[in-house]
Amino acid sequence: MNPSLKFLLVFIISLEISIKNSLTTNILLILAALIFLLWQRIKIKDILLLIAVPFIAAFTIFATLYWFQTQPDHQYAWILSSRVYVYVLTIACVAKTTTATELARSLEQNLHLPSKFAYGVLAALNIIPRMKAAVKQIRTAAMMRGMYLSFWSPMLYFKAILVAISAADNLAQGMESHGYVEGRARSAIIKIPLTSKDWCLFILILFLVNVSLFCFK
């Protein structure tokens, strides 16, 4: 499916299950997401992490509504706690099948978002590894001078900001040298297609989810 449609589908489903309470729909979505992830050959270790990490949040919600209420409502507690897994697993389905570059290009080409937004997102994502390396280099250089810069040290972040400003200037110059002009139409080296098959699959999944929401509790 087209990356933009996958993003919109997950967003709409998350919004709908937040408005309409249906435990059965939540369980069906969780099972469908798990089956899809296994079909995409995700590692069992990653599946276990996707189940274990949200457990704290889901258990906290369940305990608050079931054990610490004057009138416990186990149905509502299960609904809200299961929503956590729906959010996490559906987002994991998108993240597993779509890279950040594909999503940014699709948002620009298919949803007609401004190119500066797409390029800004890509620049921010691509600069993260460079910033990590720069912070590590700054801490190593400080230790060679007998200084230890902790994680919360203001000097560490001040030096990192200077590196980020320098990187931003280099990035802007690089984009201009490659012919980028804000507000001008640009051709796409890699096109992200939006086919009728994508729309049919999008509408079908959304239809089945809505049928389940209004038919099951």
Rank of each mutant, 00 (worst) to 15 (best):
Q69M: 14
V94F: 13
I42H: 13
A92D: 07
A52W: 08
K96Y: 12
V94P: 08
V84D: 00
F62E: 08
W78S: 09
T60L: 02
Q71S: 12
T64C: 06
T60I: 05
V84N: 03
V86W: 01
T70Q: 14
R83V: 01
W67G: 08
F55P: 02
D73H: 07
A58F: 03
P72Y: 08
P72F: 11
L80Q: 05
A63N: 07
A58W: 01
F62D: 08
I91R: 08
A58K: 05
T90Q: 14
I51D: 04
F62T: 06
A57N: 04
P54A: 07
A77D: 01
L48W: 02
Q69L: 09
T90L: 15
D46Y: 14
W78C: 11
K45P: 02
I61L: 12
I61E: 04
I44Q: 10
I44R: 11
F62P: 05
S82E: 05
Y76W: 13
A52P: 06
Q75G: 04
P72Q: 06
A95P: 07
Y87F: 03
F62M: 10
Q71H: 10
K43D: 15
K43V: 11
R83Q: 07
P72N: 11
Y76N: 09
Y66H: 05
V84F: 03
I51E: 02
Y85E: 04
Y76F: 14
A58R: 00
L65S: 09
I56T: 07
V53K: 03
V84R: 00
V86C: 06
V53N: 03
H74C: 02
S82G: 15
T90N: 10
R83D: 03
L89W: 09
D73A: 10
K43T: 15
L89E: 06
I56H: 03
W78Y: 14
F59Q: 02
Y87L: 00
F59P: 02
H74T: 07
A63Y: 13
T70G: 15
A92C: 12
A77G: 09
V94G: 12
Y76C: 01
V86K: 01
K43A: 14
F68M: 12
I91A: 10
Q69K: 08
D73V: 11
I47K: 04
C93T: 13
S82Y: 02
H74L: 07
V88W: 08
F59S: 05
P54Y: 03
T70H: 11
I61V: 13
L49G: 11
D73T: 09
I56S: 04
L89Q: 12
K96D: 09
Y85C: 05
D73N: 15
Y85Q: 02
A52M: 07
A58E: 01
